[in-house]
Simulated assay, not measured.
Amino acid sequence: MKGSTISFLREELGWSQQTVVDWSNFLREIYLSWTKKNAKQIIGGDGLTVEIDETKIGRRKYNCGRVVDGQWVFGGICRETGDFFLVPVEDRSQETLLPIIEANIANGTRIISDCWKSYNGLKDANYSHMTVNHSVNFVDPETGANTQRIERLWRDLKENIPHYGRKTEHYQGYLARFTFLKRHPNHTSRFHAIFSAMGELFNPERDESTDTDNEKE
């Protein structure tokens, strides 16, 4: 929860700091539950284009240099539909990224990326692959390939993650909240969706054994 939101809840609603923290933790649980049930989807397909990229959420140590402490996130967004996926990853190796690509992007999709070496394996998978060399330009002058949409998604993501007080164990929750808000841009439908997610999570008739099995998977 961003600092401005916390200030609003405390000043306008008269909530205590502890109440704000409790609600923040409660909503994080809601977002995580909703994401687990609804956010998984295969994006792209024949005739569609998906831009992929990685980013690191964090800040430079001691505000200098390029050493960044934080969490790597890998993602993709479909140009034609706006559908996207976000996955926290430990590293950017080919062994880590390719299985995520194959699990989230449909065969036959045209994929556009930068020239990061881990994407070289895409030429052997069932995708067409275009690249843009960001050390030279942002749009390939010959093919027009660019990753402007995924870059915009990264900007939106970082603007919606707390700049201070971030905790490593909450990164999955930050991504879940961002995904939920993106899927429900209209405030009225968002309000309804939150209460629907609450009802699903705290439904007394819910089969908890199914939830347990899903978590094991």
Rank of each mutant, 00 (worst) to 15 (best):
residue 14 G to H: 09
residue 190 R to E: 12
residue 2 K to V: 01
residue 204 P to I: 09
residue 121 G to T: 08
residue 208 E to C: 07
residue 199 G to I: 00
residue 112 I to N: 07
residue 212 T to A: 15
residue 122 L to T: 08
residue 85 F to K: 12
residue 206 R to L: 04
residue 176 A to T: 02
residue 174 Y to H: 02
residue 56 K to M: 15
residue 24 S to F: 12
residue 4 S to N: 04
residue 58 G to Y: 09
residue 183 R to K: 15
residue 113 S to L: 03
residue 109 T to F: 01
residue 23 W to M: 05
residue 134 H to E: 07
residue 186 N to W: 04
residue 71 Q to Y: 07
residue 50 V to K: 09
residue 107 N to F: 09
residue 86 L to S: 10
residue 64 C to I: 04
residue 136 V to P: 01
residue 164 Y to V: 08
residue 144 G to E: 04
residue 69 D to R: 05
residue 206 R to G: 00
residue 160 N to V: 10
residue 117 K to T: 12
residue 167 K to N: 14
residue 10 R to V: 00
residue 151 E to C: 08
residue 164 Y to H: 10
residue 213 D to I: 11
residue 203 N to G: 13
residue 53 D to M: 02
residue 69 D to C: 02
residue 196 S to M: 13
residue 155 R to V: 04
residue 42 I to V: 15
residue 88 P to S: 11
residue 60 R to Y: 00
residue 206 R to P: 01
residue 91 D to C: 10
residue 172 Q to L: 12
residue 20 V to N: 06
residue 30 I to T: 00
residue 96 T to P: 02
residue 48 L to V: 08
residue 126 N to M: 09
residue 24 S to Q: 14
residue 66 R to G: 00
residue 153 L to N: 10
residue 76 G to M: 05
residue 53 D to L: 01
residue 145 A to F: 00
residue 132 V to M: 09
residue 212 T to M: 15
residue 127 Y to H: 08
residue 39 A to M: 11
residue 76 G to H: 05
residue 178 F to I: 05
residue 68 V to E: 08
residue 79 R to N: 12
residue 129 H to L: 02
residue 212 T to Y: 15
residue 95 E to P: 00
residue 215 E to V: 04
residue 26 F to V: 06
residue 175 L to V: 11
residue 175 L to P: 09
residue 210 T to Y: 14
residue 39 A to E: 14
residue 96 T to H: 03
residue 199 G to N: 11
residue 115 C to V: 10
residue 179 T to F: 03
residue 78 C to K: 07
residue 195 F to I: 07
residue 104 N to I: 00
residue 141 P to Y: 02
residue 158 K to D: 04
residue 113 S to G: 03
residue 81 T to P: 06
residue 112 I to C: 10
residue 185 P to S: 13
residue 96 T to F: 01
residue 177 R to A: 14
residue 119 Y to L: 03
residue 133 N to H: 03
residue 204 P to C: 11
residue 54 E to C: 02
residue 150 I to Y: 12
residue 111 I to G: 07
residue 83 D to C: 02
residue 78 C to L: 07
residue 16 S to A: 13
residue 154 W to P: 10
residue 187 H to S: 14
residue 15 W to K: 14
residue 153 L to H: 09
residue 80 E to T: 05
residue 117 K to I: 08
residue 189 S to N: 14
residue 193 A to G: 08
residue 180 F to S: 04
residue 43 I to N: 06
residue 203 N to M: 13
residue 40 K to Y: 13
residue 91 D to M: 11
residue 56 K to G: 09
residue 140 D to C: 08
